[in-house]
Each structure stands twice: as C-alpha cells, then as structure tokens.
Design a protein around this nucleic acid. Structure first.
Length: 270
DNA sequence: ATATGCACCTGTGTGC
DNA sequence: TGCACACAGGTGCATA
C-alpha cells in the first residue's frame, strides 16, 4: 500500500511520540511476515530507548540508543498506529511495542508483505537495494540522462526500481508521468532532455504535494494517529480509467505493464 | 548485466 | 446466496 508519501506521513506522525520513548514491553502475535521475525526480537528490543526515526525510500529506521536499528517496511497493506497502552488488539495486529508513557505502537498488516527486522546501524541487506531517496535527493536532469542511458525498460518500471530511486511506487509513478506528459510504456532511453526536465520537476511536485496532504488514502491508509490522507482527491490518472482527463477530457486508459496497472491520458502523454 | 514473470498473503469487488 | 475470478499501495527470486 504505502509509497514514499505515506511512509513519510507515518514517520512524521510517529516521531514526536516515539523519539525519546523507552520500550517497556514487546508483544508478538504473528512472526510470519515477509521474513519470519528473529527468535530474539522481543528480548533485543526490550528496555531500549528510541533516539531517532528516519526514512529511506519506503523503509523506516528506528534508531536505538546503543547503535542498533529497528528496520520496518509496510509492504502493501502494513500500518503503524499509536494508541493508549492496553487498547485491545484487532485482527492482523502482529507486533506491539509498549512504551514507558502509556502509549503503544501497533504494527498491523493483513497481507504480511511487511518487514520488521533488528540489526546494527545500517547493516541490512534490504537497504543495499535502495538507491537515492526520491524526495530528499531526487536526480537532476543531467543525472537523469545517466540513469536512462542505454535502458530499454519502460520509464515507469525504471521509476519504480528501488535500486535506482527509493520511494516511488505504482500510484506516484503514474501521477508524475502524467504531469510530465510522458507515457508509462516509453522506453527509458528514448526520453528527450525536455521530457527528462519535465519528469524531474513532476517528481518533486507530486511527492511534495502528496506529503503535504498526508499521502493517499485509497481504501484504508491512515497515519499513526488514525488520520486519512487527501492526495487521492488530486489523482489525475491513477484508478481513473474511463474517466475524462482533467486537461483534455480524453478518457484515461489503463494498461497492464509488468503485471502492474498503469494509467495515462492517450492525448496528453506521448 | 538486464528484463520479465511469478510467488508470497488476505481482503474486496464484480459478474454469473 | 454462493462461487470463481481479478485485482490491490511491494519486493525477492528464478528464469531467459
């Protein structure tokens, strides 16, 4: 479910409550996530204080006082929610951290594609596959030339390749390509300098606006305090196939690309 | 090296 | 109502 704007919204809503908090209890109800939770997960977290909360692409990093890190990925359907300690748990609430301040943080994930993992500092195999952050260090036009040179894959697939760019997923890839006027199926190497310029601008505009609006709440995404995001109201193409393009009224098309839905305006995007 | 297809899960919506 | 099927914000591995 969550892409960069949703993960960043979760981070911002958690940060003031969890940084400085000490973990007073850990409850695990389901260890089978994307990979099984380590046997010593609870023991290693117990009693530790959170010193910072960072984000890289779609990953959250809870820094602990002694140099360890709790790495969290929300997968397709994961969420982190804060609530009063002792609040009864719901279905798919898999992991609960109770803090020293009448507060608990619950990891809920129906599909269990999410990840929770303890390790030292940034020493995670998962992070080695995450490239530059698409919000805080988006590529310049010249860098885009290098990233696309010789690449035969579709530009949308390149945008979603986390090794190239951390944070862009299926919704925001379609949205930024609409804003840039580029079809999702265009081979990356064929984009002109003008198109790459528009794409670089569109990436910043879409991601910044989405974060301002708290991400996209399509079915049930909420931030850590239970608040919905509002960027879905501004989706120009995502999940709007058949509806008129806001710019030219041509019906939006849906195509399947590498097994994922892509949405675009056949007239505005070339 | 590069690109694609599928598996991993549960829930929801649609059509018969 | 029941059932089958398609599809959903992601990633990793196997295969050409």
């Amino acid at each position: 479910m969550p892409e960069l704007p949703e993960v960043e919204t979760t981070r911002r809503s958690l940060q003031p409550h969890v940084v400085g908090a000490r973990i007073a209890a850990v409850t695990v109800r389901e260890r089978r996530l994307r990979r099984p939770l380590d046997d010593d997960f609870e023991r290693r977290l117990f009693g530790r204080q959170i010193t910072a909360l960072e984000r890289r692409g779609k990953y959250l990093l809870f820094r602990l006082e002694d140099g360890d890190t709790l790495l969290v990925h929300l997968g397709m359907s994961g969420s982190l929610e804060l609530m009063k300690a002792g609040t009864p748990l719901a279905v798919h609430d898999h992991v609960v951290l109770i803090f020293d301040r009448d507060l608990q943080m619950v990891f809920n994930d129906p599909r269990r594609f999410g990840l929770m993992r303890l390790g030292h500092a940034d020493d995670f195999a998962e992070l080695r596959n995450v490239g530059r952050d698409s919000l805080s260090s988006a590529p310049s036009v010249d860098e885009w030339r290098g990233l696309t040179r010789g690449r035969k894959l579709a530009i949308k697939n390149l945008l979603m390749d986390q090794r190239v760019l951390g944070g862009v997923g299926n919704i925001y890839a379609s949205e930024m390509l609409f804003l840039a006027g580029v079809r999702p199926g265009r081979r990356a190497a064929t984009l002109t300098r003008a198109e790459l310029t528009r794409l670089a601008d569109a990436m910043r505009a879409v991601l910044e606006r989405a974060v301002e609006l708290g991400g996209s709440s399509i079915s049930d995404y909420r931030d850590a305090n239970g608040n919905a995001g509002y960027f879905q109201i501004h989706h120009a193409v995502y999940d709007r196939d058949g509806q008129p393009c806001a710019k030219c009224t041509t019906p939006i098309k849906r195509v399947v690309q590498s097994g994922r839905s892509s949405f675009y305006c056949p007239k505005c995007q070339r």
